[in-house]
Design a protein around this nucleic acid. Structure first.
Length: 450
RNA sequence: GGCCCGUUCGUCUAUCGGUUAGGACACCAGGUUUUCAACCUGGGAAGAGGGGUUCAACUCCCCUACGGGCUGCCA
């Protein structure tokens, strides 16, 4: 099995298959983005598949939320599939596996299975299902059913080594004997993920699956399921899982790492995409200017297998860089909404963009210009600042006002350089660092409240 | 307990037996800007530990430690 991920090969069909049981977070996003980029790079298809076989936990609200988040990021799918609409197909596939003798009915209750596992562990044995039910005779099965026991169905694994060339992990080989025969249909009839996913990937022509390394063992069993159905397993790549900045489990922080929360914090899509498309790979993380650039520069095989530390703080330098690159037209509405006069919008954007991280920071700058700053004046500068303000010419202030004024103040006080500029900057803006003062002057609507 | 994967500067990583162990981000220091930011230049900074194999090991093998994942009638 060769990896068909390069642009010279045939179009690749990928899929992102979230369960609508929650919103997308950075971990999911990595999976979604990789699949998206691979499909686009090969001129193939990107399928959004809602794995909603769990009727209890799946909610439309989450399905909508997932689509909203993907759309926000510009990860457009070519088609949507819902597993809940394909139940007939799964039953059909189940019949096929039964006919092929790869499916067997089991009758242990969850409690019994749990007990069995504990026993095995106590005896130092791996907790692998012992296939007791496989050895049941037809009469015994009938007796179980007569007892009122509801059967559930397992897939009988071929107990040889399952191998595949993983796009990230390299050659993988797992002994099927070390894995329990997977349960594919529950006693209540619910089709389980492992099965539905295998059927779909074959039916939908998925040719490359990228997902988290938490699925490695699933892949082994799903390869056999797909083969048992007469399908050809796709290529696989299992990316490492994200951890927190200190290597701790990310799940503890997922509360603040949902896409919608990051959006609320002002993170820009391109910043998020740029980080996720490169973090953990050997390629440098750099702000991309377009999706095309991300597609062009993407390579799954450049990702390492080691767990990847993710720090959400890293999103903000990228967001700042992206925001600063935006043309006025893109933010004009937002600026107008703040109440910035149209004739000052251009200058305001020029001044503000170099001094913000997220667009929401714009408001603070306009408030400062409109209402005046709370000045910062050191004790030894009080007289100096007071004197300087008396020398400030009356409005209107222009770009040249700053130069003329500071020159006048310099003449009058003898101060120069840092000693001259810093106190005035602090008095007028209340800040140590900030925009070019010559540009600030025309924007200042009032003097500071000295 | 079993299975799979991993461990190189603070972070993401390059190196596919011979390198002054390279880059990116971050950091620090100079320079430049009459102020801030930006920018330019420079700098500090790494092979988990122990055994092998070899003329030579970050690289190959084994062991240990540590990290992650799986081991569900979840996905």
């Amino acid at each position: 099995m060769a990896i068909r991920s390069n642009p010279m090969s045939r179009p690749t069909v990928t899929r992102f298959a979230p369960s609508p049981t929650g919103y997308i977070h950075v971990g999911n996003l990595r999976t979604a983005l990789m699949n998206y980029l691979i499909a686009r790079k090969s001129g193939g298809q990107f399928i959004l598949r809602l794995d909603d076989t769990d009727q209890e936990r799946s909610k439309q609200e989450y399905a909508d939320g997932i689509m909203e988040d993907l759309a926000w990021l510009g990860l457009h799918w070519d088609r949507v599939e819902k597993q809940s609409l394909r139940m007939d197909r799964y039953r059909e596939a189940a019949d096929q596996l039964r006919a092929a003798g790869r499916f067997y009915e089991c009758f242990e209750t969850p409690v019994e299975l749990d007990l069995k596992r504990k026993k095995q562990l106590n005896m130092g044995k791996p907790p692998v299902y012992d296939r007791t039910s496989l050895r049941l005779t037809e009469a015994e099965r009938a007796a179980m059913r007569a007892e009122g026991r509801a059967g559930y169905w397992r897939f009988q694994l071929d107990q040889n080594r399952i191998e595949w060339p993983d796009g990230v992990l390299g050659p993988i080989s797992i002994d099927a004997a070390s894995v329990s025969d997977p349960v594919l249909i529950r006693a209540d009839g619910q089709i389980l993920y492992t099965f539905a996913s295998s059927v779909d990937d074959i039916d939908m022509g998925v040719s490359f699956i990228v997902r988290g390394s938490d699925h490695v063992t699933n892949t082994a069993t799903q390869i056999q399921i797909m083969q048992a159905m007469g399908g050809t397993p796709p290529n696989f790549a299992h990316h490492s899982l994200l951890t927190g900045p200190h290597g701790e489990e990310l799940s503890k922080r997922l509360g603040v790492l949902a896409l919608r929360d990051l959006r609320a914090r002002g993170v820009e899509p391109m910043a998020l995409l740029s980080l996720m498309a490169r973090l953990g790979s050997s390629k440098p993380v750099e702000l991309a200017s377009s999706m095309e650039e991300l597609i062009e520069g993407f390579d799954v095989e450049s990702f390492g297998a080691a767990p990847t530390k993710f720090n959400d703080e890293d999103l903000f330098p990228l967001t700042r860089a992206h925001v600063q690159s935006l043309p006025l037209a893109t933010v004009a509405d937002r600026i107008a909404a703040l109440g910035v006069p149209a004739d000052q919008a251009e200058l305001f954007w020029k001044v503000a963009k170099a001094n913000i991280t997220v667009l929401a920071d714009l408001e603070g700058w306009w408030t400062l210009f409109r209402d005046g700053a709370t000045p910062l004046v050191d004790a030894e500068d009080v007289d100096f600042v007071a004197q300087a303000l008396t020398l400030l010419p009356p409005k209107p202030w222009t770009h040249d006002t700053w130069g003329q004024w500071t020159e006048t103040v310099k003449q009058a006080t003898g101060r120069k350089g840092k000693g001259l500029f810093r106190p005035l900057r602090r008095a007028l803006t209340g800040l140590d660092a900030g925009p070019e003062m010559a540009d600030v002057m025309p924007l200042l609507q009032v003097l500071p409240k000295v």
